[in-house]
């Protein structure tokens, strides 16, 4: 095979992958995640389907069962439409109440069984006023783990 033919074939394969990815992803990525309100509004549509839901972790709803390694919490965006999420796995480092999360999984009745739990971190960055102390405490917390 001539070198040139090889390059043409290689280029065609890459181009095909690009087009396939774009078409497939452009459809999906407009809805990378649904909101709880959208899911609750039409439960029949989302039943038995693997979906992602993005919202905030509701204050005071987190229940961590260390024995069973099971995490249960409610997610909501507006405080009214809330969904209970069950996740069998450890808590991510940045997981806390009020934090934005994206969960992937299926609805099972009124509950959402998450297969994956992603933390959506904010674009806002802050520092403690007492730098030296916070730095020392941070390193100490890492060492003790």
């Amino acid at each position: 095979m001539k070198t040139r033919t090889k390059f043409v074939i290689g280029g065609a394969v890459i181009l095909a992958v690009i087009v396939a990815l774009s078409v497939q992803e452009l459809q999906k990525m407009t809805v990378f995640f649904y909101t709880p309100a959208e899911v609750l509004a039409s439960p029949a549509e989302f039943e038995e389907k693997t979906i992602r839901i993005g919202a905030l972790v509701e204050q005071g709803s987190v229940d961590w069962n260390a024995q069973a390694i099971q995490l249960s919490f409610n997610i909501t965006e507006d405080g009214e439409n809330s969904i209970n999420v069950i996740y069998a796995g450890v808590k991510p480092d940045l997981f806390r109440e009020g934090q934005g999360v994206v969960v992937e999984g299926k609805m099972n009745g009124p509950r959402f069984e998450a297969r994956q739990l992603l933390v959506k971190h904010s674009e806002e960055y802050t520092i403690e006023t007492d730098h030296k102390k916070s730095k020392e405490e941070y390193y100490k917390s890492i060492m003790s783990q």
Partner: peptide, 10 residues
């Protein structure tokens, strides 16, 4: 200083 919400990975 260390960023407060993310820590070292920031």
């Amino acid at each position: 200083p260390i960023e407060s919400s993310q820590g070292f990975p920031q």
